[in-house]
Simulated scan of single mutants.
Amino acid sequence: MSTVIRPELSKSSKYWIDRHRYYELKHFCLQYPIWKKAAQMLDALSKSPSLLEEYIKSGRISDPTVDCAEARSFYLDRIDLLERTAENAAPEIAKYLVTGVTSGVSYDFLKSRLDIPCCKETYYDLYRRFFWLLDRARK
Rank of each mutant, 00 (worst) to 15 (best):
R78H: 15
S58D: 15
K95I: 08
L52A: 11
L42R: 10
E24T: 14
E70M: 05
Y107C: 06
Y96D: 11
L51Q: 10
N88S: 04
I56H: 08
A71T: 06
T65I: 14
H27F: 14
L81Y: 07
S103G: 12
D67Y: 08
S73K: 09
L45C: 00
A90E: 00
K57G: 05
D80Q: 14
K57I: 13
E83P: 00
E54C: 03
Y32R: 07
A39F: 12
F109H: 12
I34K: 13
I61E: 12
K95P: 00
K47E: 11
Y55I: 02
P33C: 12
S73E: 09
L45H: 03
D63I: 07
L52C: 07
E83K: 01
D108C: 04
I56Y: 05
A69K: 11
F109K: 04
S46V: 05
A44W: 07
L76Q: 14
Y22P: 06
A44P: 02
A71W: 01
L81T: 03
D108A: 05
D77A: 10
F28Y: 07
R21E: 07
C68R: 12
A44L: 15
A86M: 01
S112T: 12
V101E: 01
C68W: 00
Y75I: 06
W35M: 09
S106V: 02
T65G: 06
S46L: 04
V105N: 06
F28W: 08
Q40I: 09
I61K: 07
E54A: 06
D108K: 15
Y23W: 15
M41S: 13
